[in-house]
């Protein structure tokens, strides 16, 4: 692929898959600064891997693979932000209308989920993230590189661990 094509493809995917990047970065970091650093590292790895992208792969599973591989090998101390740039910012968006009670409950539930995800072992957190984002067993198997049967077994175990953590944190 030509550089220009790669660039425009990357821009398109950036818009479509930044949610994946943010979710993975949030699940594996504790502070906003670390989250920004990890998100940038994921995008760097995606950019570097883009020339090797095979058209037959599914883009969303490809993005998940890059994001999770980067997150699991990411070490805070080694990747301290070398320069502060405004390329990536994570910030709360001011609400235009007050949240409904249901929205508030959902938001709290999501925050609790992130807190629980951070306590799970790396691979379990990855499995739960993929499950929460509604990936099929086949897609999860593709991301993790394990058999579909094994996904089922591991996912049940991870969900059980997650339930325990959420039970402990219940207000």
């Amino acid at each position: 692929m030509l550089d220009k094509n790669l660039e425009s493809l990357f821009r398109t995917w950036l818009i479509e898959h930044q949610g994946t990047v943010l979710k993975v970065a949030r699940a594996y970091t504790l502070t906003v600064e670390d989250c920004q650093d990890l998100a940038q590292e994921i995008l760097l790895q995606a950019w570097l891997s883009l020339p090797r992208f095979e058209e037959r792969s599914d883009v969303s599973t490809w993005f998940y693979r890059v994001a999770l591989n980067t997150a699991l090998s990411w070490h805070r101390q080694e990747h301290r932000r070398r320069r502060h740039n405004a390329a990536i910012e994570i910030a709360d968006v001011p609400l235009v209308a007050p949240e409904s009670a249901e929205q508030l409950i959902q938001r709290e539930a999501v925050e609790r989920l992130y807190a629980a995800l951070r306590q799970l072992p790396g691979t379990d957190a990855a499995l739960v993230l993929l499950y929460l984002d509604d990936l099929t067993y086949r897609q999860i198997a593709e991301v993790l590189g394990i058999s579909e049967n094994h996904v089922g077994v591991k996912l049940n175990r991870a969900k059980k661990a997650l339930s325990e953590l959420l039970k402990d944190e219940a207000p």
Binding site: Q18, I88, A91, V93, Q103
Partner: peptide, 10 residues
């Protein structure tokens, strides 16, 4: 989930 927080990419 609503997009809170939001990732802004330049």
């Amino acid at each position: 989930q609503t997009s809170q927080p939001h990732l802004t990419v330049n």
